[in-house]
Design a protein around this nucleic acid. Sequence first.
DNA 1: CACGGGTGCGCG
DNA 2: AAAGCGCGCACCCGTG
Length: 575
Amino acid sequence: MHILLERVGRGDVRATWLDSSHGGGAGRSETLALDALPEFVRTEETGAGGGGDRPRWVWDDTRAWYPALLSAGVRVERCVDLRLCHVILRNSTLTASTPLARAEPGRWDVAVEPEAEAPTAHTALFDFDEALFDSEEPAETANATTPSIRDEFAAQEEAVAASADPRRLRLLLAAESAGALIGVELQHAGLPYSAERHDELLTDLLGPRPAYGRPAVLETLARELRDQLDAPDLNPDSPPDLLKALQRAGIMATSTRSWELRRIEHPVIDPLLRYKKLSRLLTANGWTWLDAWVHDGRFRPDYVPGGVVTGRWATRGGGALQLPRQVRGAVVADPGWKLVVADAAQLEPRVLTGLSGDQAMAAAGRGKDLYEGIVASGAVEARAQAKVAMLGAMYGATTGESGRLMPRLTRAFPRAVRLVEEAARAGERGEKVTSRLGRSSPVPGGRWAAAQSAASASDATEADERRARSLSRDWGRFTRNFVVQASAAEWALCWMAELRNRLTALAPDEPLTASPHLVYFLHDEVIVHTPEALADEVAAAVHAAAQQAGRLLFGGFPVEFPVTAAIVDSYAEAK
DNA sequence: CACGGGTGCGCG
DNA sequence: AAAGCGCGCACCCGTG
């Protein structure tokens, strides 16, 4: 049962029941006041609405509808996020011939990430009404050229049904929509975060928070650098300035990057690297960051599901996906609660195994660390080699150690290597590639195509050809990686969606934050905040969900997806 | 003064 | 140019 929600008039909501057993025809509909919506949704979710099963809510944008429901204490089990699903169906090679994909661009194709779109947790500027409606289109745009929500949903259903693989696309759209719900729930719950511990950590490393200027430790280091380099006016934060000072002191660096400086033997290098590390901590995750993003014991970043072309998530503000190891000790469970920190081991190579159906690689990953398994297969001698070779295969390395290992990897795992090679060749030709469940890569832009035709013109210069070839190879590396990264993102979404269901089942009648709930997601890693008594069950759910995700993507193919699940008080204790 | 590109580095 | 993929963010600095 689907229930479609849309805004009508000034401040009303129309709910329309779509009966899938009658060809998607619309059943009854009901108009209600906006402030009655949470109670309405709650009623339908608890099955008291009359229907037996719980509904799948169909709406234009989860970020616009769901925060207010959560704030009112109402959780939603399933939805269709039409905006996110539209992007997938519009671009997928599996739906390329459908009307939805061939239509002129319309309201569903405009990028919806303007700053004003979603209410953010750290401003009180938006109340319920504004969050839902201020950014919506004016009512009178519901005309023939801008498909209504119902028409769009019908077009999407039609596109899936007519696609080359409805089962996979349906799964992808469900997973993407579940991700949209989870993204809002993550922000609502927030990551348990101790501002006190963070402050202690900063004070230990940098000295006390200064009223202005550099903290004492950085100031001391800066002075030391100026002395040693005999450059009294040096600003170590200015790379050009710093590079000149190094060269004047006889240090022949070509840049000021840490990895390059690290190889130079000179007394100034050690304090310089310490300065850079601490300076980074201060600017990226210092007291200013703490003030901006941590409130009431929670870090609430703004997640953007589907924000990356591969389907990975992005975040806006707070740098949530770059939370450095250095500060993870400040992520702490509430008293009486635990964190279950879970992480998928070697996710991308395992996804490649499933994509390619490479039995040899599946065997290498069975029951053990995949890289050790590759060593055991005899393809390479050491784990580090296995890792660098696999990364090279998935990223398109051609030189260096990784490039040299490629022939051996190819001999041992021809199917896996062939899959990424073919993805690279397709990209070099400017073609799309498609993930396991049906997300397709973009095609290169006009500049790329122009460079290619310039190179094949009769008056092409050698420089034209070199440039075209280079761009072509670049795009091939992107598509090579796309098939793996996008499919891994799908696995992660399925994993998380399965886990979310299992967590709900552990305490079905509790509000989100009173029971085990997801609080963090980082590509192949999740954190659950749970009452201590349920931690073991959460860890079991994490494992079971991973197995289920593997089956959803790869059916009976025997590729394993082992996950670790550490029950800890602080994020820093996990691995 | 605002803006945007470049640099550098955090994460996977 | 770190050997290669995907990001976000802070800062510097040149340009308008």
